[in-house]
Design a binder for these strands. Structure first.
Lengths: 109, 109
DNA sequence: CAGGATCCGATGCGATACTG
DNA sequence: CAGTATCGCATCGGATCCTG
């Protein structure tokens, strides 16, 4: 459930709106780690996700988050290429929520 | 992205675990409304969702939430049938998170 | 009223291979 | 190293119809 953008807003409930940003495989963890480490290279993110995720998936999730204005990236024009990902202010504002999700998960899963 | 249960736990990150519970179309809003109203009949939930959701979908999401121990239901053996849904303690513990999601959505969407 | 049964399209997600 | 391109399946989710 990832790209299921919804335009209709259910009477003052913006819950789904936020979930649309967070739901998508690995997005939560990606933000979690970026909050923790600040800046991470593509390969570092992949390692943190224990190589469970394929490059393709990681790329897609990062692109989605970029579109939403949650993460941004800095590309070094070097060889071999080096790309760093970091949270935008909008992304950092998710800190409380991510922390809450993490805590709840620790308690109830 | 609803049934994508993940067993692997990424080094002390339980974020995805919670997202697995919340992600699924309408689950967030369902919990949001149950937090707000306490108890809701099937048909009341459907109206609150502005009839956007089909009975089938609403039923499925409620069954998922029930399996996770988030909601519970009380069936009145009457004709016509009457079924009430309400949050379990585990479900109520999501209040802070749901509120956070709602606030963030209001601010950034 | 609440919800089960079917059908069916959309897309989420994975595996694999290739490139500047 | 950090991607893009293809292929393919599983499942998510919508529409419709049926029932105790």
């Amino acid at each position: 459930m990832v790209k299921m953008k919804r335009k209709e807003n259910i009477e003052g409930c913006s819950v789904e709106c936020t979930l649309n940003v967070l739901c998508g495989k690995w997005k939560g963890i990606i933000i979690f780690h970026l909050l923790k480490y600040g800046i991470l290279r593509f390969s570092e993110l992949q390692k943190l996700l224990k190589n469970i995720v394929t490059q393709r998936m990681l790329t897609m999730q990062l692109r989605d988050l970029e579109k939403e204005g949650i993460v941004s990236r800095h590309i070094y024009p070097t060889v071999p290429p080096k790309v760093e990902y970091f949270l935008t202010d909008k992304g950092k504002s998710l800190a409380v929520i991510i922390q809450g999700l993490n805590d709840w998960g620790s308690d109830y899963c």
